[in-house]
Simulated scan of single mutants.
Amino acid sequence: MKSRETLIRLKRFQLDEKRRKVAQIEMMIADFDRMAVDLEREIQSEEQKAGITDPAHFAYPTYAKAAAQRRDNLKRSADDLKETLDRAQAELAEAVEELKKVEILEDRERGVERAAAGAREQAALDEIALARSARTY
């Protein structure tokens, strides 16, 4: 019984770790997306100041080129993290299933123990009733 309780605690701990990992990855993706949007605004601002929107133009702002490169890198990193997120979510789902299995086994074991305890109690009550009925005769 103790080992099963320890196993359940371990599975819950693992599940919490998987949840934290998923949340952390989601937060990183959101940060990268937010930074990419900010860079996009800066690029548009620089293009408006210069009056040039074609990155191939010789007078295209250098800062806008650098910001576009950083934005593209952030988007690639976010895409890579999305793949990592998919794997982490699959691991999380697996951890949930493992915990459920262990908890179901624990519930079954407790049900069997309760039934056995109930049977013992009923047997004791039957003995008491038989003893009383034997005394009355």
Results as ranks from 00 to 15, higher is better:
Arg41Leu: 10
Arg110Cys: 09
Thr62Tyr: 12
Leu74Ile: 08
Glu113Phe: 07
Pro61Phe: 06
Pro61His: 03
Glu94Asn: 10
Gln44Phe: 11
Gln89Val: 08
Glu40Lys: 06
Asn73Cys: 02
Asp31Phe: 07
Asp86Glu: 12
Arg71Glu: 12
Asp79Glu: 14
Gln44Glu: 11
Ser77Lys: 02
Asp72Met: 06
Phe58Trp: 08
Ser77Gln: 04
Glu91His: 10
Arg70Ile: 11
Ala117Cys: 03
Gln44Pro: 00
Ala95Met: 06
Glu103Trp: 01
Val102Gln: 10
Leu85Met: 08
Lys100Pro: 00
Ala68Val: 03
Leu92Trp: 04
Thr53Lys: 00
Leu99Phe: 07
Leu74Pro: 03
Glu113Ala: 13
Ala36Pro: 03
Arg110Thr: 10
Asp80Phe: 05
Gln48Leu: 12
Ala59Val: 07
Leu39Phe: 13
Glu47Arg: 08
Ala93Tyr: 13
Arg87His: 07
Ile104Met: 10
Leu39Glu: 05
Glu103Pro: 00
Thr53Tyr: 05
Glu97Val: 07
Lys49Met: 11
Glu47Gln: 15
Glu91Leu: 12
Ile52Glu: 04
Glu83His: 14
Ser77His: 02
Glu94His: 08
Lys75Glu: 12
Gln69Cys: 02
Glu46Tyr: 14
Ile25Lys: 06
Gln44Met: 12
Lys100Asn: 04
Met35Asp: 15
Arg110Gly: 09
Arg114Tyr: 11
Lys21Met: 12
Ser77Leu: 05
Ala30Gly: 02
Val102Gly: 05
Phe32His: 11
Ala36Thr: 07
Glu83Leu: 15
Lys21Cys: 12
Leu99Thr: 03
Asp86Asn: 07
Val102Pro: 00
Gln69Gly: 00
Lys65Glu: 11
Ala95Gln: 06
Leu85Gly: 05
Glu103Met: 11
Ala93Gln: 15
Arg34Asn: 07
Lys49Gln: 15
Glu94Arg: 05
Lys101Tyr: 07
Lys65Val: 09
Leu85Val: 12
Glu83Val: 14
Thr62Ile: 13
His57Cys: 01
Ala88Val: 06
Gln24Thr: 12
Val22Glu: 00
Arg114His: 15
Ile43Phe: 03
Arg114Thr: 10
Ala95Val: 04
Ser77Pro: 01
Ala66Arg: 03
Lys75Ser: 08
Thr53Gln: 02
Ala116Phe: 10
Glu47Pro: 01
Arg114Cys: 10
Val96Arg: 06
Ala59Glu: 11
Gly51Lys: 03
Glu47Ser: 08
Ala115Pro: 02
Leu85Gln: 09
Ala90Trp: 06
Ala68Asp: 08
Ile43Glu: 03
Val102Glu: 15
Glu109Arg: 10
Arg71Asn: 04
Ala67Phe: 07
Met28Ala: 11
Ala90Arg: 13
Arg87Met: 09
Val22Lys: 04
Ala117Tyr: 05
Ala64Trp: 01
Leu74Trp: 09
Leu74Ala: 00
Leu81Glu: 03
Val37His: 05
Ala115Asp: 10
Arg76Asp: 14
Ala23Cys: 01
Glu106Arg: 11
Gln44Ile: 04
Gln48Met: 14
Met35Ser: 11
Leu81Asn: 05
Glu91Asn: 12
Arg70Tyr: 13
Ala95Gly: 02
Ala23Thr: 09
Lys100Tyr: 08
Asp80Pro: 00
Leu105Lys: 01
Leu39Trp: 04
Ile104Gly: 01
Val112Ile: 15
Ile29Arg: 03
Pro61Asp: 04
Ala64Asn: 04
Gln44His: 14
Arg34Asp: 14
Lys49Arg: 13
Tyr60His: 01
Ala36Lys: 02
Thr62Asn: 13
Phe58Asn: 03
